[in-house]
Structures are given as C-alpha cells and as structure tokens.
Design a protein around this nucleic acid. Structure first.
Lengths: 136, 136
DNA sequence: CTGCATCCGACTCGATACTG
DNA sequence: CAGTATCGAGTCGGATGCAG
C-alpha cells in the first residue's frame, strides 16, 4: 500500500497524496477528530449556531465537561473551530466554525441526515440479523 | 432538549424524529459505526471494490484481525455491508456494500476527500496554534 | 461561567494462540 | 483463508475538587 509521505507545509503547490488509508497519514487523525463520538456532534451543533460552552454542553446530550473541552481544543487546533473569549465577568466564551469548519460540517451534516433518515431501514436490518442468529 | 422517542419499525409512515443529539437515540450508535476509526476506513475501502477479509486488512493499514471482524459484524448488522460466504476450500468470503451502505459511503467519501484535500490548511492551523502556545 | 488537574474504574484495543 | 478466544496494557471518559 502507498505511503503518506512527509508534506512540507511551506510549499505553495497543491498536494494530492494525503491518504487516510495509510497508517501514519496525519489526515487520519483529523478525520477522527471530525467524525469521533463527540467531535461530530460538536461540529453538528456549531453548524447551526455560534454557541457558548455550556450551551454546547446542553445541546450535545451526554457529553462531559472534560470531553467537550478536549474535543474543542482538538478542533480548534485543526483550524475547524474558532474560540473567542471576552474578558468580562462572568467570562463569556463563544465558539464558532471557521470557513474550513463550515465546509467540513456541511458534509458531515449531509451524512448525519442521511443516517437519521434511513434509521428505519437500519432497525429493520438489525431485527433480521438478530432473528437469524437467535434461530440457531 | 428533545427526546428521541421509541420508534415502531412496523409503521409504514415516514418517521422524522430520529435525532443524533439525543442521548439515547439509536441513530447515534449507527453514526458511530459509520464514522468510527475503523468503520469509516472499512466502508471507504468497500466503496471502491468488493473485497475479501484479508484484502480488507491490507487496505485498511493498521487494523487488527479482531477489530476488522468486529467492525464488519456491526456494519452487517446495521444493514450497510453484505457478507457472502462461499463454502469452498479454502473458504472465500466476500464483503460488499448494500444499497444503503453505498449511499452512506458516498457521503462519507465526500467528507473524507474534503478532509484530505484541506490537510495543508489543517497543518498550517496546527503550526499556528502550537507556535502561539510555545510563546507563552 | 469557563474551564484545568487529578483520580480511578470500565472498556477498548492489539498481540497471540488456536479452530474449522 | 477466515475467523474466534483469551488476556493484559493502555486509553477513554466520568466524577470530583479547585481556580480565574
């Protein structure tokens, strides 16, 4: 299988050979941040609104403080989310998507909506699968 | 936040309220199978070809036997992947996408290709982020 | 309100060995 | 070839406590 060679960020030329299937390609890590358990839901929530920390916590049901914080840091570092802290009291921090984050989230939401819309098929498939297994 | 109520699979009516943001909505589990570390790469590989078990292992670099097996079971149960075993010797088992799996993978590949194509931006953002942190 | 630090249990994952 | 079984290290993730 192909390598994912070192890429020199300083080059201005477009670089094609980023390849998620290669073991050590950095694109794999970014894809995991985007599609991970909390990353996908966080981006999805920010796709509709600029949100503050605790607003996010409420939208993404089940996420802990720690994981939300961790997730936001990773997404910020990858340039998908912009963090804006206002030095007021009480503190107010807003998170919103960058242009890159917006493009990414658009595709992600396409996928999420497809899955949501096809859940009846998925549930039916599960019943069939489980029924067959129970038979033996 | 909204619930994700019980859905009766036997209903023929279209069902809208599947909502990944709800803590206990089954769509969240399916989304994780699709977008998870190995799920996404497995679907991506099958998007281009029908593949056998060990062919998949070679395409998805770094996946262990155990995780590939587990991943395939989950995707098969959700109705995204079809498994066809030929009772020959040596055994030959082929995996391919179902129509539902194909639609899902199309969206997933859109996302993957976007991420791959924008990696230069991501790497630049990381350098900026890390540089700022190192400064203090 | 918006976080970071620490602790600790649960669970995931990979390596290995083995079966059909 | 196509898996399953087992086990241990490592990571994930929630709870708690504290700071700005």
């Amino acid at each position: 299988m192909t390598d994912c060679p070192q890429h020199d960020v300083s080059l201005q030329e477009p670089q094609l050979p980023f390849n998620v299937f290669a073991r050590s390609c950095p694109s794999r890590g970014t894809l995991e941040h985007v599609t991970g358990r909390w990353g996908s839901l966080t981006l999805g929530a920010l796709g509709e609104d600029t949100l503050r920390f605790n607003e996010l916590r409420r939208r993404v049901e089940g996420v802990s403080e720690k994981m939300l914080s961790q997730t936001l840091h990773a997404l910020e570092r990858d340039g998908l989310v912009h963090r804006e802290a206002q030095a007021t009291n009480p503190p107010r921090v807003e998170y919103r998507l960058t242009p890159l984050g917006l493009d990414t989230t658009q595709r992600l939401l396409d996928l999420i909506h497809l899955v949501e819309g096809r859940m009846p098929e998925v549930l039916a498939a599960r019943q069939a699968y489980d029924a067959e297994r129970a038979g033996r």
